[in-house]
């Protein structure tokens, strides 16, 4: 029983948290790719930007003496999402739209997004310094411990309050996104444009509006993803680069342009990472008794050492690109 609890704590809960973060980031990336046909490299930095916006707002809120039952980071989230969405629109208007109007190739836009990445990275470090910050300076992180002694376990399942809220928020967002894309006219227009941009325009769909909505959604989701990551771990400018590749991996694995694929891909990669670095010996300990004399499980049976955790996403990405570049849901490729 203890082994199962260990597994739940280390893999199930961690994996779901990470999966939610990756999924929300990947949805933004995949939407931008589907509608605008370029790889938005600066997405990781958009997440960091959103997290910093939330951080500033939360700090301002506590400085004004407002106390809430929920962690400050979550309370300011709606406002932070709006601000980040506006910033995302600004990014497009300032850096990408002018190039698109001149008929720039996707590669040029990718390079432009690298420029944006560098600028945001530089700016956030300039303003905030490169140190690590936490949302929980002034308040504590509540941890819920579910006692499992009734099932024979000697340790509890532990889950932090932010994690619980994260699950709820992610679930809400996924449902809202689903309804938007399948029920609303604008959502369907987005899918139409991702499917066939030329025909969308011929059908009378206001493509400029769809582009704006795409950036708004991508920005808002990036803010949530970045803030959740900061709430779960810590906030630092380095956040961005480490997250770009798993997110792109998730988007590609799920099929570029397919929002649901991005969500599935996000959880896939997250669980792959968590399970690859998980010390399976801890769970397989009971089997030790079944093994013949002289043989025992090694002390640490992890597929991949912890330092290589990020490599897991990359390996999955490379394999996907080689074996099935269109991803699970058959998105765009060549």
């Amino acid at each position: 029983m203890d082994e199962l609890i260990f597994f739940i704590n280390r893999v199930l809960i961690s994996g779901t948290v990470l999966g939610s973060i990756y999924a929300l980031g990947a949805v933004g990336v995949t939407l931008i790719f589907g509608i605008l046909r370029f790889a938005h490299f600066a997405h990781g930095d958009m997440m960091t930007m959103g997290a910093f916006v939330a951080f500033v707002l939360a700090a301002a809120m506590t400085a004004m003496g407002i106390v809430t039952p929920l962690p400050a980071g979550f309370v300011v989230l709606p406002l932070a999402m709006i601000i980040t969405a506006v910033l995302a629109l600004g990014l497009d208007k300032g850096f990408y739209a002018p190039l698109r109007q001149r008929g720039a190739k996707p590669v040029t836009l990718l390079i432009a997004s690298i420029g944006v990445t560098l600028m945001i990275q530089g700016l956030t470090r300039l303003i905030f310094g490169s140190g690590t910050r936490t949302f929980f300076d002034t308040e504590s992180k509540d941890i819920f411990r579910i006692d499992m002694s009734w099932a024979g376990g000697s340790r509890p399942i532990s889950i932090t309050e932010p994690q619980v809220i994260m699950f709820i928020v992610t679930a809400l967002i996924v449902v809202a996104l689903h309804l938007f894309l399948t029920r609303s006219r604008l959502g369907k227009a987005m899918r139409a444009m991702a499917d066939n941009a030329a025909l969308a325009q011929v059908s009378g769909i206001n493509t400029a509006l769809v582009v704006r909505v795409t950036w708004v959604i991508a920005g808002a989701l990036a803010c949530v993803a970045g803030t959740m990551l900061a709430l779960d771990v810590a906030l630092m400018p380095d956040l961005a680069f480490n997250i770009v590749l798993p997110i792109f991996a998730a988007a590609i694995v799920g099929g570029l342009g397919h929002a649901y694929g991005a969500i599935v891909g996000g959880f896939l990669i997250a669980f792959a990472e968590t399970m690859a670095v998980f010390n399976w010996t801890a769970v397989l300990r009971p089997i030790n008794g079944l093994l013949p004399e002289g043989m025992a499980l090694p002390a640490n049976l992890a597929l991949v050492p912890t330092e290589y955790k990020l490599t897991v996403a990359f390996v999955i990405l490379v394999i996907t690109l080689l074996v099935r570049p269109t991803g699970i849901f058959k998105g765009a490729s060549t």
Binding site: N196, A198, A200, G204
Partner: peptide
């Protein structure tokens, strides 16, 4: 390429009425 292949027939028609 005159239909939205990933969308249903009805959704294609809806797009025409956008």
């Amino acid at each position: 390429k005159n239909v939205f292949t990933s969308m249903t027939v009805e959704e294609n028609l809806e797009m025409g009425a956008f």
